[in-house]
Every structure is written in structure tokens, then in C-alpha cells.
């Protein structure tokens, strides 16, 4: 029998020791996770880096699919890894709809996994993207200290708010700065629209079903997020929640509507969103309740050049100049509800 050399024996010993250390580390993580209330699955890796997509947005079908796949990957690795790093290196643009969804997803994952998974990031090679990530506090959410200086006019006007109540005071930091650039009747309409969106999140989005994201996490916070930004004399507002989505909750909150939806033969999410915006029925089946979505539509339709887009799960409904059109993204769901409002601003000179 061939004798092993001293060198080979030392190598085997080092290998065994390395394996033992690795096993101990993994065992410690599992032990830590089991102690945590949010334990989901045994972490399989210690560390993982996810490459963020070039474009963050949900309008374009292809780009939406890549972006939502990235969010799914982020959820998966947050569940499995001890440290999950988002590499923004390739990211070239962030729309308000993509930015708010990323912000919301990160907040939610931090709430679910806490210290079990540390979310980190690497910056983009695009200075504008880094400025946006700093301005909307995604960098600080990911414990990254950025030295990007906020100089760009299309970045410094981004504002964000997060809450879990119907709290009208949250209007001020996001939209109060536009007083004088929005007609008063539009401003009051926006306030009522946004507070109704908050009420919808709290009373419907999280109430009946869990979000179908595989995390099996029961939301008790009723969180919503709101962004605003101005660009080309237009004010863009994004509002989102990560609940079960309008198509899932409407039949639960309004059982009688469920039969109406079946009778009419509405099958797609976009059909159901459209149906929801045209009804005055509510959770309690009484005509006086649940007027939030129709009110949004009414307010935006009354504003010349106003635009409303509602994304919920796979569906999208858009209202421009009183005309409605819908679209179904068959393969990709945003797993929540996102409302985009666009209204014209008076120019600074007037």
C-alpha cells in the first residue's frame, strides 16, 4: 500500500478542518434562525450577491419582467443567506414606480428577516442612479454610506414617505412643497386621493389574504409607501402597498362582487381593477362605503392632462383624459398595488 506523504496528510487535515469550520458556521446560522420568529428555511449559503437590472420600472413588459425577477431573487436570497448584497453596478435608470417598489421590498424584507439576513449593496457606475438611491434613502436602508453629492435637478425633487396609518400629515413632506404650483382644488383632490389610497391599504390590502410571494409572512404593519418627483413641469406621485392586490382582496372584501365578477366573466386582473374603479360598493356591502378607487378616478379625470395608472398584481389600468385602457402582464405580478398619478405643474415663473 502506498504511504501518504506528510504534505498530503497535512492537506487532508486542513481540508477536514475547513469542512468542520464551515459546518459549524452553518449550524450556528440555522440555530440563530430557529430562535428567530421569522425563521423560514434553513439558510444554505452564507453570502450572496445579486446583480440589479439596468432598468427599474414596471411599464415596459420585458424590463418589468427582468426587474420583478430581480425582486423575486432578492426575496429568495434574503430568506436563504446571512448576507445579501445588491450590486447596482449595471443599473442605468430608476423610474419612480421601480424605485418605490424596490424601497418597499427592502423595507419589508428588513422587517421580516431583521438581523437574520443583512442587506447590503454596491453602488452603480451611474452617478444619477447613485444620487437617486441616496435621495430616496435606499443606500441608508442598505447600510451604505455614499459620497454621491445631490446635484441633479431631476433627483433633488424626489421625496418619499412611509406609514401604516391613514395619516394626512404625511402629505406635507411629499407634496407640501408644491403648494402654489398646483391649483388649490387639485391639491385638495390629491389629498383626498392619497388618504383614500392609505385607507385602502389599511382596510383591504393586508386584511384578507397573505401576499403570494412564498415567504408565508403575515403582515401586521399595513405599510404603505409614497414618492413624489417633479420633472418637465409635471408632478409624478407613486403610492404602493405590498398586500395581496386588488384582484385578490376585492372578492374577499365584497363577497357579492365575487359573484358579479363570475357572472360577468371577468378573468384577468386588469378587468377586475377596471370593475373596482367603477363601483361604489364596499367591504360592508353597503353603497356608502369603498369609494376610494372611483374617487381617485374622478379627481384625476377632472384635471386637464391628469393621468392615473393603477398596477395591481398582473393587471394595469390607465386613465388619461377620461379614457380608460387596460393591460395584462401575463407572466409577471408586482405582488401588490401601485398607483401612479401624474399632474401638470404651473411653471415657476407664473
Amino acid at each position: 500500500m502506498k504511504k501518504t506523504t506528510l504534505k498530503a496528510r497535512a492537506y487532508c487535515k486542513r481540508l477536514a478542518e475547513k469542512k468542520r469550520v464551515q459546518q459549524t458556521k452553518e449550524a450556528n446560522i440555522v440555530k440563530h434562525c430557529r430562535k428567530s420568529k421569522t425563521y423560514q428555511k434553513k439558510p444554505t449559503r452564507i453570502n450572496r450577491t445579486i446583480s440589479a437590472p439596468e432598468h427599474f420600472g414596471v411599464y415596459n413588459k420585458e424590463k418589468r419582467s427582468v426587474f420583478l425577477d430581480f425582486l423575486a431573487q432578492l426575496r429568495l436570497y434574503s430568506q436563504k443567506c446571512r448576507i445579501c448584497t445588491i450590486n447596482f453596478h449595471k443599473t442605468k435608470s430608476i423610474d419612480s414606480d421601480g424605485g418605490i417598489l424596490l424601497k418597499a421590498e427592502i423595507c419589508r424584507l428588513k422587517t421580516i428577516f431583521g438581523n437574520q439576513c443583512a442587506l447590503r449593496c454596491k453602488p452603480s457606475k451611474s452617478n444619477k442612479v447613485n444620487q437617486i438611491l441616496k435621495q430616496i434613502e435606499i443606500f441608508s436602508d442598505l447600510n451604505y454610506t455614499s459620497n454621491a453629492t445631490l446635484t441633479r435637478d431631476d433627483v433633488v425633487h424626489w421625496r418619499c414617505a412611509h406609514g401604516n396609518l391613514v395619516d394626512g400629515e404625511k402629505y406635507e413632506p411629499v407634496l407640501g412643497i408644491y403648494d402654489g404650483r398646483i391649483a388649490e382644488e387639485i391639491s385638495t383632490g390629491l389629498y383626498s386621493t392619497l388618504t383614500e389610497a392609505m385607507a385602502n391599504s389599511i382596510n383591504h390590502a393586508y386584511k384578507y389574504k397573505h401576499r403570494n410571494d412564498g415567504l408565508k409572512y403575515e403582515d401586521i404593519n399595513n405599510d404603505w409607501w409614497m414618492f413624489s418627483q417633479s420633472h418637465d413641469n409635471k408632478l409624478h406621485i407613486a403610492f404602493c402597498d405590498l398586500g395581496a392586490g386588488i384582484p385578490e382582496t376585492i372578492s374577499e372584501s365584497l363577497p357579492r362582487m365575487q359573484s358579479a365578477i363570475k357572472r360577468i366573466g371577468l378573468k384577468t386582473d386588469s378587468d377586475i381593477i377596471k370593475f373596482a374603479t367603477g363601483t361604489g360598493k364596499s367591504r360592508t356591502e353597503k353603497s356608502y362605503r369603498g369609494k376610494g378607487l372611483p374617487q381617485m378616478l374622478r379627481v384625476i379625470s377632472s384635471i386637464p392632462d391628469g393621468k392615473l395608472v393603477i398596477f395591481s398584481n398582473k393587471g394595469m389600468l390607465r386613465a388619461i383624459k377620461g379614457k380608460l385602457d387596460k393591460h395584462e402582464y401575463r407572466k409577471s405580478s408586482i405582488l401588490g398595488t401601485l398607483v401612479i398619478l401624474e399632474i401638470p405643474l404651473k411653471s415657476m415663473e407664473t
Binding site: V166, Y171, G189, L190, S192, T193, T195, K291
Partner: peptide, 9 residues
């Protein structure tokens, strides 16, 4: 700042 339908109702 305004009134939502939930509040008024």
C-alpha cells in the same frame, strides 16, 4: 388639506 370620502361618510 382636503377630505377623503371615508372621513366624510
Amino acid at each position: 388639506r382636503g377630505y377623503g370620502s371615508s372621513f366624510l361618510e
